[in-house]
Design a protein around this nucleic acid. Structure first.
Length: 907
RNA sequence: AGAACCGUAGCUCAGGGGUAGAGCACUACCUUGACACGGUAGGGGUCAGGGGUUCAAAUCCCCUCGGUUCUACCA
């Protein structure tokens, strides 16, 4: 066994095993289900740290539950990412000098599928490196037949319930991708621009607005190129400056068009010049104002972002919107209508995919009225059917469901689920019957006399990923085994940044279509930020590739870092030191095992150290009830069989292990994965390796069967507890200890109060104090570790130390003697004072300084405790345990103080 | 404009009414038969500031300052 753990030599074999012989979920099992569906990444995507974090947390929960005896399903898959995928394939076509229209819809889609088969989905391969224990036989894709059927059923149902409708509304248009977008596919970005003050002349030149000269009214705008589509000028109804002008008319500059001046509450009096132009076709708020005032909404910008329409003076027609802005500004300036131009920062909406500024347009699209669906989800949330952790996100979830707007679900793309709606020559809509949703209307015998054309558009990708928790399990076939067994799912793990669009939509779809919550618990984690605390983005080029981290530190180390950095949904700032810590920890574990194996093979070849329950695998009938588990507890068995042969250290580590087992299980139950791994790290390193292994060293002859068995079983127990977090190294080590079945299918240890041993814990703590004191003295005396120093022990627990002479001498590398002659250097600790002969070159002043500091500290603690106890309120109101603790502290610190003063008398 | 989170050792972060913690960094010593990706002994903090509640506040409440994020946006 090499002296260093080499992840590269270990990981590929296990990753391959877990992919080729996946952990298949058995829908017919009698075990209780535990289901997590992966948040499906884009088929175009690469693994980023968010995915790695998600899936580390998921796999940790999953591996734990599998070991704990649940029928576990971890369902992997991807979504088809409508726009992203289509743009990717179109990019390829462009390089061949073609467009998708050259191929036609059918050939284009064949090409997309070919791309998907060949180069899509690398992300799932990357995920395998992470060691996820997914059921790869159940991998799903949102464009699969089954999931497509689910989408179709969803639409048909919503249509017949009156919730899906077609209408003319203002939508977000991506002029590059040539499709509508939902609000959530838009990134807001603050950009520097200009705000223009423009003069509109009043029809009645005898009037004046107080913000301009006679005969004019000034308005402010950032989009002067849209003035040709203006339908009104709006002012606030209570704005005294303009009240006399309401109902009057003004002329759009560069044209002869007159528009009314209206009053609307949406206007902010204090902003700009107090008046603004209303352009209902080109801004959402303007559209809403227009609706209130019965304005028309002519458009002057076409779907490619060019100025068009008879309303536009010929000079500007055909200009691209940003070129048009320059031209219009120049013309306004020339005509004297441009009064002012000032710098102004506006939040501009950019298409998430094409990065083009989004153009609000009025268009005929399919929408879903989500209010009733949101209401059902809200009710479920209120009733606690879904729990969010951290709990504070419940409010965010609720706010989102309460304020949700109608959802534009149609996209002008080819890649996606084509909308199952047909139109006749008069534009009437035909949608399949609710009873027979799979029958296309143009194949429906009832409609053969009509010339039906199918809607060419496809659904928003979210209109399929909202079904993911149940479409992947066979819905709409609710009699399906998988659906019956594994739905609703238990946990959803994702970043809080997509609480809004994905989580809320799954909740609505779950309640609306299955009548059940899609998941019981939503576990939200924070964003993974770069080391400066900034969000990673392509534009900033500050992304960190998890695959590089895997290479550099090993996957277990990365999983350790992800797990230990994740606390309470806080954002995670990248810190390489945490990955080093994980790497070092994996190595520590490796070497602890190496040590145990070496010693056991030297000393104990004949000992019956085989785990008596290997290959014991818990079956359905043996669900972990407390009673059945007890009889199976290896540690309990160990304690029973070797009771007389256990050393103090053995008893101590078993008691501590039991406490840690209990704590880790509790942490996992409350989804506090960070606390769980931090606790395991501390126990493994600081207690098992630093103290127990050292204490065991002098006790490892063949007669010490208690220690030899403890050594091995505690190690195996640690490997089990760590397995969900660091599956590679633990599987490898467990196997190397002689187990034939892989660690992942062994059972999760349960704590047992019988193993709690307070006496051993206190006693061993005293030994630790004695050892630490002896080491400290050796340090003061400038001795090297191998020098055997004679030390004597005084104090309340001196006898205990003497009873464990071999252990203390072995760990501290000292020689315990009954007493010392002459001057001594001493170290006072709880329960014991350790003395060493004062010889050689010692910096006495330094040592005395430290002792005085220590004395002052003791005094401070004693005074604090006495202060509390002399406070009547404290004695009257504090709990009895707290009062006893203070009394104990006075006694303990008092004893130490006494001993310390005794020691200092010599000087 | 609303909402939430954060401010603890030099750095990155745990803790979350009753004794201030970890990793890294720092100082000194140690290549001792598991591990230098290691070991031992140390140094280092008025828990952002101010009020309040309480017998007791780093922890709960309020305010201020600083930082971050989300949502909505003002032409």
């Amino acid at each position: 066994m090499p002296a260093q753990f080499d992840p590269a030599a270990t990981e590929p074999r296990w990753a391959k095993t877990w992919f080729e012989e996946p952990f298949r979920a058995d829908a017919t099992s009698a075990k209780p289900p535990f289901t997590i569906v992966i948040p499906p990444p884009n088929v175009t995507g690469n693994l980023h740290l968010g995915h790695a974090l998600d899936n580390t947390l998921i796999d940790t929960l999953i591996r734990h539950k599998r070991m704990a005896g649940y029928e576990v399903l971890y369902l992997p898959g991807m979504d088809h990412a409508g726009i992203a995928t289509q743009m990717k394939v179109e990019q390829g076509l462009r390089e061949e000098g073609k467009t998708r229209h050259d191929l036609g819809r059918e050939a284009f889609l064949e090409r997309v599928w070919a791309w998907k088969t060949q180069s899509g989905g690398t992300i799932l391969e990357q995920l395998r490196r992470l060691g996820v224990s997914a059921d790869w036989t159940r991998e799903r894709f949102t464009m699969d037949a089954g999931l497509s059927k689910a989408v179709r059923h969803q639409f048909v149902r919503l249509y017949h319930e009156g919730l899906a409708y077609r209408g003319e509304r203002m939508v977000n248009w991506d002029p590059v991708a040539q499709t509508t977008l939902s609000d959530l596919e838009i990134d807001r970005e603050n950009r520097k621009g200009k705000m223009y003050t423009v003069s509109y002349s009043l029809e009645d030149s005898s009037l004046a607005a107080s913000n301009g000269a006679a005969g004019e009214i000034l308005i402010a705008t950032v989009r002067p190129e849209t003035i040709f589509a203006d339908q009104a000028i709006a002012v606030h109804p209570e704005d005294k400056r303009f009240q006399h002008l309401v109902g009057q008319k003004a002329r759009i500059p560069l044209t002869d068009h007159l528009i009314p001046i209206i009053a609307d509450e949406a206007v902010e009096m204090d902003f700009g010049v107090g008046a603004l132009k209303i352009t209902p076709a080109h801004a959402l708020t303007d559209f809403e104002v227009g609706e209130r005032h019965g304005l028309k909404h002519p458009s002057v910008i076409d779907l490619h972002g060019h100025l068009t329409s008879d309303l536009v003076p010929e000079a500007f027609r055909g200009l691209e919107r940003f070129a048009a802005r320059k031209a219009v500004v120049a013309a306004l300036q020339e005509s004297g209508a441009l009064i002012q131009e000032q710098d102004h920062t506006t939040a501009i909406g950019l298409s998430e995919r094409s990065k083009a500024p989004v153009e609000p347009v009025i268009s005929l699209q399919w929408f879903v009225n989500v209010k009733p669906l949101a209401q059902q989800a809200l009710t479920g949330l209120e009733q606690g059917e879904i729990t969010l952790t951290p709990e504070r996100y419940t409010k965010v979830n609720r706010d989102w469901l309460e304020n949700i707007r109608d959802w534009n679900i149609s996209r002008q793309l080819w890649w996606g689920h084509q909308i199952p709606a047909w139109y006749d020559e008069e534009g009437r809509i035909y949608v399949p019957d609710a009873q027979n949703p799979d029958l296309d209307c143009d194949l429906d015998p009832r409609y053969q006399h009509l010339n039906l054309q199918r809607d060419p558009d496809v659904f928003d990708t979210w209109f399929s990923s909202n079904l993911w928790p149940f479409s992947t399990l066979g819905w709409p076939d609710e009699g399906n085994e998988d659906y019956s067994k594994f739905y609703p799912t238990q946990v959803l793990v994702t970043g809080y940044d997509i609480l809004f669009f994905w989580v809320a939509r799954m909740e609505m779809a779950g309640y609306g279509l299955t009548g059940k919550p899609p998941f019981e618990t939503v576990m939200l984690h924070g964003l993974y930020l770069d080391s400066k605390g900034q969000k990673m983005s392509k534009s900033k080029n500050n992304g960190i590739d998890p695959l590089d981290l895997f290479d550099q530190y090993g996957v277990d180390a990365c999983r350790f870092a992800f797990a230990s950095l994740s606390t309470g949904g806080q954002d995670i700032k990248h810190d390489p030191r945490r990955f080093e810590q994980g790497r070092n920890f994996a190595n520590k574990l490796w070497n602890a095992t190496r040590f145990v194996k070496m010693r056991l093979s030297e000393v104990a070849q004949d000992l019956p150290l085989q785990d008596p329950f290997t290959p014991y695998i818990r079956t359905a009938a043996q669900m972990p009830t407390e009673a059945s588990e007890r009889s199976q507890s290896l540690l309990l068995l160990l304690v029973q069989q070797h009771q007389d042969k256990l050393s103090l250290a053995d008893r101590w580590i078993i008691s501590r292990l039991n406490a840690v087992t209990e704590q880790v299980s509790a942490d996992l139950a409350s989804y506090d994965i960070g606390a769980a791994i931090r606790g395991l790290y501390a126990f493994t390193w600081d207690e098992y390796c630093d103290w127990y292994l050292e204490a065991a060293k002098p006790n490892m002859s063949a007669q010490n069967t208690g220690t030899l068995v403890t050594l091995k079983l505690v190690l195996e127990h640690i490997l089990k507890l760590l397995h969900p977090f660091m599956p590679f190294v633990t599987s490898e080590l467990y196997e190397s200890l002689g187990h034939r079945r892989q660690l992942a299918v062994h059972s999760w240890p349960l704590p047992d109060s019988v193993l709690h041993d307070a006496e051993a814990t206190h006693a061993f703590d005293t030994l630790r104090s004695a050892v630490a004191s002896a080491r400290s003295l050796k340090n003061e005396l400038g001795l090297s570790p191998q020098d055997r120093l004679n030390v004597a022990v005084l104090g309340e627990h001196a006898a205990l130390v003497q009873d464990n002479t071999r252990t203390v001498e072995g760990i501290a590398k000292v020689k315990l003697v009954p007493a010392l002659e002459g001057r001594t250097l001493s170290q006072v600790a709880p329960g014991v004072t350790v003395l060493a002969p004062l010889e050689g070159t010692v910096d006495l002043a330094d040592w005395l300084g430290k002792q005085k500091k220590r004395l002052a500290e003791l005094d401070k603690q004693i005074n604090q405790a006495e202060g509390k106890l002399s406070n009547e309120g404290f004695v009257a109101r504090a709990p009895a345990e707290v009062i006893e603790e203070e009394q104990r502290r006075i006694k303990e610190f008092g004893a130490q103080k006494e001993r310390l003063e005794e020691v200092l008398k010599q000087f």
